[in-house]
């Protein structure tokens, strides 16, 4: 039996709930408390939502990013922050180690590109479970980036659980999702047909003028 003032009197559920109020890094700080708290802390890492300084560290040291993804099997969300910079090695690690991912926010910096193959692999693994996908790019007019955008566009409407889609550079990605400008009837119809398979989409942001669909 534990003393009344010993936090280990709490069951796993309650401890997990307490940990859910901690920040991403504070949960890692709890890892060193004891074996029980190490397990609880890692199990409770569901949101990889962190500030810019950390994401910079991960980008420069993919091994740190890898060690985190490796030990946190429950990660569901990556991002939640406009500054979540994702590079090709990072995305590959996400594909390799994450199994429960359902929300992804990524920003691709000007000097970085991600291969269409990796993006296809990402969607092949997560399309069924994604409920949120947000994407930013610094310099969409670069050839590499327009390829990324085309690949995302190709995949995104196969994510039938999606509720929220965000694409920042609407002007540079005229065809991503629902901007009809300059599009023919066939394009509109085929997009509508595909959208019907995504009944959960509630929010589409970043599109200038959108006709009401449902």
């Amino acid at each position: 039996m534990y003393g009344k003032d010993n936090i280990d009197r709490f069951g796993d559920d309650l401890c997990g709930l307490l940990l859910s109020y901690f920040s991403f890094e504070d949960r890692f700080r709890c890892e060193c408390l004891s074996k029980r708290w190490q397990r609880l802390a890692l199990e409770s890492q569901k949101d990889l939502t962190t500030d810019f300084s950390y994401i910079t560290i991960f980008r420069k040291n993919p091994t740190i990013f890898e060690s985190i993804l490796k030990k946190c099997a429950n990660i569901e969300t990556i991002g939640g922050n406009v500054l979540t910079i994702i590079t090709q090695p990072m995305l590959e690690l996400v594909i390799k180690y994450c199994h429960r991912l359902n929300a992804m926010d990524m920003k691709i910096p000007i000097y970085v590109t991600i291969s269409a193959d990796t993006i296809d692999k990402f969607f092949a693994k997560f399309a069924k479970q994604l409920i949120r996908f947000k994407y930013w790019s610094y310099e969409p007019s670069l050839p590499g980036n327009s390829e990324i955008s085309a690949t995302i566009e190709k995949n995104i409407l196969d994510c039938h659980e999606l509720r929220e889609v965000f694409n920042c550079y609407k002007h540079q990605f005229p065809r991503l999702l629902l901007d009809w400008t300059g599009q023919g009837v066939d394009y509109k119809q085929s997009t509508l047909d595909r959208l019907e398979k995504c009944p959960n989409i509630r929010t589409i942001i970043g599109v200038p003028t959108v006709p009401r669909l449902f």
């Binding site: 534990y2 003393g3 003032d5 010993n6 936090i7 280990d8 890094e25 890692f28 700080r29 890892e31 060193c32 408390l33 004891s34 074996k35 708290w37 190490q38 950390y54 560290i57 991960f58 040291n61 740190i64 060690s67």
Partner: peptide
Amino acid sequence: LKIHNDFTPEEEAAIHKENEWIYA
């Protein structure tokens, strides 16, 4: 929080090392 530390000093040091990035 009255938590009993059941790590060996080596195990604890390894965790601190792995999490060094928090302080970096």
